[in-house]
Design a protein around this nucleic acid. Structure first.
Lengths: 214, 214
DNA sequence: GTCTATATGTTGATAGAC
DNA sequence: GTCTATCAACATATAGAC
């Protein structure tokens, strides 16, 4: 029988704090020693606790990975969402979006690895954990469709193609940066610092020609 | 005292065959169960041999990874090199190069993962294993510089920028394809099949304008 | 070159006392 | 919710017989 708590009770607050601490240590381990280096034992060691104790909070190591995935996906979506609404032109909007996403991944390399490179044999995120990524893709596609509709991108542009290629550019910047200069900050990374330029180059062939009337 | 063999002796041939078999099984394991699932024990199991036997051929698990990395890097360079020499225009040359590279990675997902995503905690390729990658980057940069020199790309083009962004596009195609549709062939992959189109979009902003005289 | 045997370490996970 | 105790697996790697 599972113990339940009324929202905000002292017990549930303490429980949540412990879960947060587990997550914090998990991220640290993965950041320093690699995503594959995470283990229940190592988390317990750093919390000065025995491994069995952690099973009161997570039923398995995979469930810890899943929580990290879920938090990462939610956080990235929450971080990127504001960049969508305030955009004016396609170039500025997608530039801002790309910067926010690449920056987040460079600043959260461990979780980004987990989310975009599937490095853990046998681990697949649960649908709940994955949901924010699906929503993010939907929003991105909508945004690009809006740009086409409003003439910020060439009429007749294949929305799905632009969406897919945009994710290709983003994921190329991220994977190159994380693989080659994992510890370098967004601003000075050899790849991440090219984010806006990459978006410009990518978008230029989709922009309406000056003579085209919309 | 290490045993040495005259080149081509029966003993050395047999030894080489055993090494090849170890590599073959290692690739199979990584392909099916993930790069992180490789172990000396599992290789031995599949060869119907005890783990200690393999230490006569490789001093450690990491050395197996290093051999896989070295063979992959050599093979990819050998595969890509022909695509460099026969190219005429920048678009066709870089298209062909991109196709060859992305195709190789999609057809060798395990080794590609090992080479481009560093998923094994604590493993770094030796300089010897990495050397072909360095050479490949040098050749790519030379080729792009040649295109600029011969007017296939806009004069004044930043060769280093084009080189870096080209690797970004390539690695974006590869990482998206391997992460989202790992088992799908190059031709029908949602991302890999966009390879030529991605190169076209990428290059269009570097092409000389029709009115520009070279 | 292969084997047995072993040292030594790790892990995930469970049962049950407190 | 924490602990001790323990299980069952699994790993890398070495020593030394054959």
């Amino acid at each position: 029988m599972a113990t339940t708590y009324s929202l905000g009770s002292r017990a549930s607050q303490r429980r949540q704090a412990t879960i947060d601490e587990i997550v914090k240590h998990a991220v640290e381990i993965m950041t320093v020693d690699g995503v594959g280096a995470l283990s229940i034992s190592e988390i317990a060691r750093r919390m000065h606790v025995r491994p069995p104790s952690l099973y009161k909070y997570f039923p398995s190591l995979h469930s810890v990975y899943d929580e990290l995935f879920a938090r990462g996906a939610r956080d990235l979506l929450a971080t990127a969402q504001p960049a969508l609404d305030t955009s004016s032109s396609a170039v500025e909007g997608l530039r801002a979006l790309a910067v926010v996403i690449v920056r987040w991944c460079v600043e959260n390399p461990a979780v980004a690895h987990l989310m975009y490179m599937r490095p853990v044999p046998g681990f697949e995120p649960s649908p709940e954990a994955f949901a924010p990524n699906v929503e993010a893709m939907r929003l991105l596609r909508n945004e690009i469709a809006r740009y086409v509709r409003f003439g910020h991108l060439k009429s007749g542009t294949d929305v799905d193609e632009v969406t897919t290629l945009f994710t290709v550019v983003i994921s190329g910047l991220i994977s190159q940066q994380l693989a080659n200069e994992p510890a370098v900050s967004f601003g000075i990374g050899r790849f991440s610092s090219l984010t806006e330029r990459a978006v410009d180059v990518f978008l230029s062939s989709y922009l309406p020609t000056p003579t085209e009337t919309q």
